[in-house]
Design a protein around this nucleic acid. Structure first.
Lengths: 396, 396
DNA sequence: CTACTTTTTCCACTCTCAGGACAAAGAAGG
DNA sequence: CCTTCTTTGTCCTGAGAGTGGAAAAAGTAG
């Protein structure tokens, strides 16, 4: 099938496309209620969008008491590819233009194998999804990587956990391979975009999205837009000092949050506890698998293991202290906690909440929800699709 | 004199007004180079602005190789009032429309005397400035208060150090008294606006402006706009924990940055050092004045007093640690240090720099200037004038 | 079948705006 | 002083965008 290459010609068209993306099929009249354009002007813009085939007619809408309106929807053949490259696994999903997931695969993979190997993997996963018949090609792709990105060019810069990627032209390369526009961003930012689009943050303009996975990062949304900082490293909170003179960290400092709590740190602590026989639950699991991860800690905690619960609580306290500082500074309307360790669930959340509500002033915390992400592992890929759709649904 | 009440009728006019404000008198042709409007359109908009008397003709410009152009400038009779209410003193200044200070008074005053007393003071200071003949009335006023503000309404909310002000309709009241539009903001945000307009931050889109005075606050500028947070308390970094289990703070917690370093904390530490005879310089000054302030510490440090230097260094280290966290999180393009204690100067700056450059990742600090504010005590009042001019020079 | 709503199309009129032509004002050079 | 070139400012016209009224089309409710 021929891929769509058209772009909205002006801000009005872009606005309409986004309304259709976020609100699904809509009648012309309903669109008119939302955009403050004259009937004639609206008709003209819709007609032009129909010409570009970005949107299509879609039958009649229900009557609102009079003549029934013709429905308009985004072209149902449009397909976006959402790619979320984590430290230890890759998620690839296909969405339609409304960013609904049509297919989703996850595979373990170490990002340190480098961009070439990872891309091969990603492309084969994309091919596998295509083979199921849900897509014949892609109109755009969004991709998240676990490190800072020079956003306009889509190039990772000095990413600590993926050294081989520094300066690799991800956007350019993937665009070549896929033959469609590509946008690249930090995986944490994409999680924030995902939760904003389809998750808990739908109605909030300013919020923080803390992702606790192999590392710890924080997506920052200001006025509905992701804030990336001067060099693209905004939200890199894993190396904020959480414990004075604490554990040494890979970054060269001591006491970094990430050194004390993250998927990796938690696995280490759990292993130590198991070896020292402080936790029967964890010891059993270590024996069984030969290794421990955050998932084991979650399971042990669910089984009531005191040591596992302590580990989670302590980590939550540390994280909560750091977040408390960020809340004082940023005064967000919402804090979302997500990432691989959300399996730790309410024990973690309770610890974080306690620290934040205690450590920040009432004016900042008074009406501040602190919640787990709604979307789990799909947040990243939805965010990735959202990223590229935002790009494509803006004036050329 | 009749005050100007006109406002720009559209975005083009607003743009032109801001260009004239920031760039001073300009020829029509030069304006044309900057705004991407057709000559005819530009001429129309300029004519309309001339009609409103917001701008006036101002003689002929130098030739650029052909016919000389007629200069345009903002009406030289326009006057803005900039008010900066600190914890212990009040600054009032009068500016022209280009935000140049024409007159400036500072008077000590305790903000805790409440809004009525402070307003009386402010109005009498404004009257005094008027009496010098630099202004016959005011076309707008900006006012900064040392606490969080609900910005759209211009009402302080739950300000810790000025309890009597909670909920007081500052904007409304002052607008009544002065008979002109008024905007209210946090004093730290105004300092940031001031440094952005006329100081070190002229060319930077994303920066932090840390003000160390009686308390500690931080102005946040994102994409050239001040970010105020969900409830107007963004930047309230004085109560971030800097020392685990540190000194008790007025807010109820322990170890807040403000409890360990600020104008007030520094005075306390200095007095203690003097009483304990650890610092001859400070002891002499205590004897002479009966009390010590940050200024005395600065003087003692300048005289080479080791204890004073230590106090500054330690405070700088604490502040620097907190800023290091903020830099990791926010990835600014510039950090400005200002406020009453900037007299501590380079000792303080050096300590802060050391901590930030050590405590944040290279990607965030690599090209990050950390500098003292350029404007000193005028930053606040210039920022206040900028605030109201931004408001007035935007489409009605 | 009638009266009323809502949606959509059509159309005439207004308004904006870009850009060309030209006049005005000055610079540079002889 | 005169000629030629450059820049600036004004005027004007034609293209196009956009508004809002009117009427047709397509329903609903009774």
């Amino acid at each position: 099938m021929r891929r769509m290459t058209a772009r909205p010609a002006n801000a009005h068209q872009a606005r309409l496309l986004r309304l259709l993306r976020d609100g699904g099929p809509n009648s012309r009249a309903q669109l008119g209620d939302q955009v403050d354009l004259s009937r004639s002007k609206l008709a003209v813009e819709v007609d032009r969008l129909l010409e570009t085939e970005l949107v299509v007619a879609d039958g009649l809408a229900a009557s609102r008491g009079g003549r029934r309106s013709h429905n308009i929807r985004l072209n149902p053949h449009l397909r976006f590819l959402g790619v979320d490259i984590g430290a230890t696994s890759v998620d690839v999903a296909v969405t339609n233009a409304e960013l609904e997931i049509l297919g989703h695969i996850n595979q373990p993979m170490d990002v340190r194998e480098g961009p070439v190997a990872v891309f091969e993997q990603v492309l084969s996963m994309a091919a596998k999804l295509k083979a199921t018949g849900i897509a014949e090609g892609f109109d755009g792709a969004g991709i998240g990587v676990p490190g800072p990105v020079r956003f306009p060019e889509g190039i990772p810069v000095a990413p600590p956990i993926m050294p081989g990627w520094d300066g690799f032209p991800v956007r350019e390369a993937l665009s070549q391979e896929l033959g469609c526009p590509v946008m690249v961003d930090n995986d944490v930012n994409l999680m924030a975009l995902g939760e904003q689009h389809a998750g808990v943050a739908r109605t909030v303009a300013d919020f923080l999205c803390v992702k606790i996975g192999t590392g710890i990062g924080c997506g920052i949304v200001v006025g509905g837009e992701v804030y990336r900082g001067t060099t693209g490293s905004a939200g890199d909170i894993g190396h904020i000092q959480a414990v004075p003179d604490g554990r040494p960290c890979a970054c060269g400092n001591r006491g970094c949050l990430e050194a004390h709590f993250s998927g990796a740190a938690l696995a280490l602590d759990a292993t130590e506890a198991a070896v020292q026989q402080r936790s029967p639950e964890l010891a059993v699991r270590l024996e069984a698998n030969g290794t421990l991860s955050a998932v084991d800690v979650a399971a042990a905690a669910a089984a009531g293991d005191a040591t596992a619960l302590d580990l989670i609580r302590e980590g939550g306290n540390r994280t909560g202290q750091v977040i408390a500082g960020l809340v004082s500074f940023f005064n967000p309307g919402l804090v979302v906690i997500g990432g691989g360790v959300t399996g730790l669930g309410h024990t973690l959340l309770a610890a974080i909440r306690t620290q934040v509500y205690r450590g920040s002033l009432p004016l900042a915390t008074g009406n501040l929800p602190i919640v787990l992400g709604e979307l789990g592992p799909t947040a990243g890929v939805i965010g990735a699709a959202r990223l590229i759709s935002d790009h494509l649904f803006s004036p050329a």
